[in-house]
């Protein structure tokens, strides 16, 4: 009986997290398109519902009722598995994200490693989709994307090491609580910039959306997908973007903490600050999508391996020596 109660409680908690995330993914897609429109002096989606808020729901409805087409020469099992894996991984990483000091499903010791592991797994959804389609454009897109994600993961890993040096724990709550006096964005500002750009590349957002560069590769690994399976890829992609925004606000912007610890600000519940910070980061993602032209593939690789990697490595050495010299290492 006790086990059942526990299972019931956990399911309840998981649903309470998953449903808002799925809804906010829908809203964030609308927000993205809207910002994109405004930057280009268009209106963006504004017809369905108030301000066009239900546009994504209408799109989702359309996707659900569309026929799922599986190419004749495709590897059926892998073809169907790929979008499922993408979406499952993107959602399961949210289990360890603390939205406020009490709102977290799994408060594990190695939270940051868990997120890193899950995001390194998400490349499989793309490779599997590209390979199983048995078609040239998806395969090229998948290979590009895999190379891109693997290389930018390296630089994100080293950026995380920078933050961990200042915290002394792999727990996400500890990382936030270590920023009570000073957000890490101040001492580690260059790392924040590098993190932001790497996050763009990691989630295949413009200007690094080479895997789905429509001028060269039709739609990259998603070319052969239709209906709900395409929608799942796309849901997973946006859930991943939100996840990296959340991770960025936890690592650098003090998570659920208010900017200054004075009365009217710190009375606001932490979750609002968290959501606010995620939205700010996502707003920057959306602006960049509208502003910056797409990179060439060799420029992208050069940026990852020849600039970000050495730079963040040097910054690790600098941070470590600073902490040791002034005896600030966390005990």
């Amino acid at each position: 009986m006790e086990t059942f109660l526990q299972i019931y409680n956990e399911t309840y908690k998981i649903l309470l997290l998953l449903v808002p995330i799925l809804v906010s993914v829908a809203l964030i897609v609308w927000f993205d398109r809207r910002v994109w429109g405004f930057v280009q002096k268009r209106k963006g989606p504004n017809v369905v519902g108030p301000f066009g808020l239900f546009q994504t729901l209408a799109d989702a409805l359309k996707y659900i009722f569309k026929e799922i087409i599986i190419p004749a020469s495709a590897n059926k099992i892998v073809f169907i598995l790929a979008p499922i894996i993408t979406m499952t991984l993107a959602l399961s990483a949210w289990a360890v994200i603390p939205l406020s000091d009490k709102m977290v499903i799994a408060d594990i010791n190695v939270g940051i490693l868990y997120i890193f592991a899950i995001s390194s797994l998400s490349v499989y959804g793309i490779i599997m989709g590209g390979w199983a389609s048995n078609s040239k454009y998806p395969f090229l897109g998948a290979i590009r994307s895999a190379a891109q994600m693997v290389s930018y993961e390296v630089s994100i890993g080293i950026i995380i090491i920078n933050v961990l040096l200042c915290v002394g724990s792999l727990n996400l709550k500890d990382i936030v609580m270590a920023q009570q006096n000073l957000w890490f964005v101040v001492p580690l500002f260059p790392m924040f910039v590098v993190y932001f750009i790497s996050a763009l590349a990691e989630t295949n957002r413009p200007p690094f959306d080479l895997p789905e560069a429509e001028a060269e590769l039709v739609a990259g690994y998603q070319t052969e997908y239709s209906g709900m399976m395409y929608a799942m890829f796309w849901l997973g992609e946006y859930a991943n973007i939100l996840l990296l925004c959340a991770l960025g606000s936890i690592l650098f912007l003090g998570g659920w903490l208010s900017p200054v610890d004075i009365y009217p600000l710190n009375a606001i519940p932490g979750i609002f600050w968290m959501i606010f910070k995620i939205l700010i980061l996502f707003f920057m993602f959306a602006l960049i999508k509208a502003i910056v032209p797409r990179y060439r593939y060799d420029q992208l690789m050069r940026l990852g391996w020849k600039i970000f990697l050495p730079f963040s490595l040097v910054y690790v050495v600098l941070t470590a020596s600073f902490l040791v010299y002034f005896d600030l290492l966390p005990k």
Binding site: N109, V110, F116, V123, A146
Partner: peptide, 17 residues
Amino acid sequence: EFLGMMMLIVYVGAVAV
């Protein structure tokens, strides 16, 4: 848990790719 996560990151995330 540390070994498990390292297994995921190193073997699944890099070597198997």
